[in-house]
Nucleic acid binder design. Sequence first.
DNA 1: ATTGTTTGTGTAATCAGTTACATATTGTAT
DNA 2: ATACAATATGTAACTGATTACACAAACAAT
Lengths: 319, 319
Amino acid sequence: MTSPDFFKRTGKMALGSRLRLLTERVNEEAKSIYELYGVEIKPKWFPVYFLLAHGEKMAITEIASQIGQTHVSVLAIAKEMHKAGLLWLSKDENDRRRTIARLSPRGLSYTDKLELQCLDVASAMDEVTQQMQNDLWKAIAEIERILDERSLLQRVESKKMEREHDPVQIVPYQEKYHDAFVALNTHWIETYWTLEPEDVESLNDTNRFILDKGGHIFVALLDGDPVGVCAMMKCEREEYDWEIAKYAVAPWAQGHGIGDKLFRHILEKAREMGGFRLFLESNTVLEAAIHIYKKHGFKELPSVSSAYERCNIQMELTL
Amino acid sequence: MTSPDFFKRTGKMALGSRLRLLTERVNEEAKSIYELYGVEIKPKWFPVYFLLAHGEKMAITEIASQIGQTHVSVLAIAKEMHKAGLLWLSKDENDRRRTIARLSPRGLSYTDKLELQCLDVASAMDEVTQQMQNDLWKAIAEIERILDERSLLQRVESKKMEREHDPVQIVPYQEKYHDAFVALNTHWIETYWTLEPEDVESLNDTNRFILDKGGHIFVALLDGDPVGVCAMMKCEREEYDWEIAKYAVAPWAQGHGIGDKLFRHILEKAREMGGFRLFLESNTVLEAAIHIYKKHGFKELPSVSSAYERCNIQMELTL
DNA sequence: ATTGTTTGTGTAATCAGTTACATATTGTAT
DNA sequence: ATACAATATGTAACTGATTACACAAACAAT
């Protein structure tokens, strides 16, 4: 039914689509719930019904502004309800523009049933809410308030400005960064060790070794040029979620916090994807890297038994 | 713009309407964000675009199942994108039923721009998320999971069963319970004291004294008959949110936990409405009530200076 | 008293999705 | 080899909302 994988990949860009899907689903459920109670009311009538449930009289526009819809849709609902014999429409004597709506006796007679239904739905929703760590209801209220303060457009606009003025950017790996990925990693290996045939293979076949297995690579761009890379791979060890590897920054670009920014990005992604136990292997000669690992809270593990000969230190972090 | 008052009143019954409103709003914003980036892509194309962004080829139905929409809507999107020159459609050689979609070179050329847009939107959304106590994104994922386990319909169904088999029910106040509200309160006052003219006035004019000021009354029904009432009023003292008052249960119905259930309901409502500091006044001769107050954690306040002569104890609770 | 603006309602077209059903291919079980 | 079921697409009609626009009543300012 749900396709959580897709939305995990899109990230928050697809909020609209996701909300629409959830809305659809909730309305679907609502329909069958109304049927369960034998109330001949369409779910979309509910807001109007609720407003008039105790005999209140209201003009179309008034209803619309209260329930947050356009007068056109309220008009359509009112007509449908009128046709179903639940609602009466009349002109306001004092202001001949206004059309006053109120429930018919038959409409009013449903109020009790509907009230029971509300009761049951409320307690079912309460039950659901208790099972959630994040209260959907409150979250909606919060985001509405936050977007009232400053629209998403404005926020995105300033992020855009920020980004455009920042020469350093972290982006997800793409095929076009493959050469840089290989070159950057080759460089630090060759500085201290020699490149083994396995190295060449694993670097060249990025897709097979990292991405296809559910791993991710991020690239640091300086004025659009790739100057740093770092990979997070699904960890083969049971006790960890992600292994950080292939972390390399061009020597001439070091010392400007680019590596740190890249690494922070990786940690954030891990957090987002719900993997909290991180692992990495390295060598103590790579002082700059070890410094960054420690800075972000990685702790050294006691014993080392690595597949790579050039590793003499293993570290872990639980986010 | 938003109408939070209305949704506060409807409670969780109007989740569908509320979600639709939020969806509408997000999509509205999305539209202007796309414009900001000068990408000639409609927001609703995004899921399809995202899937094909790196040259992937996919059949219509395949796309549909991945993004959680019907093949019909994907087809419509594909046609629109085709018309806009962003997408190519071709028949699968091996399976002549399948229509394969992939981005045209022009479509692919937008990928970079869109990626930047994703980046900015993601960081704007992250900023928003950090301001929220309840993570909307996670809340959606959670509720989807919970509803996968057991549909809302099923949950409501069992709540209905429970309610129908439980003779005791707590419902919000309605006009028809007015007589019971007056009678129940009059009874305990007259048992220990005499009814003053102010009492009569405040009980009779429930609307003006309690409801119009944003207070709430709940009624305990036993087999449909009102046997208990309790009010929560906006507290006049700065340091509290709600004052509990007019708490009365018919003597012949006492000792069956009805009063307790009613009181628990009140506490829950206070919690829901975000009022955490509660206050009440009472008299120590009302042992049953004092017992319930203490049971739920109310603590006695030292000094008493009440408007009511018959009060000799004041209590408070922070939820 | 007149005129221009605001407000309330109504109509038509549009949008982004849906369901229901038709048609063409492909797979499968005798 | 055939017939039936399953799959992939396509079409038409519907749904629940919207925007754009028309028109009449009420209000406000000269």
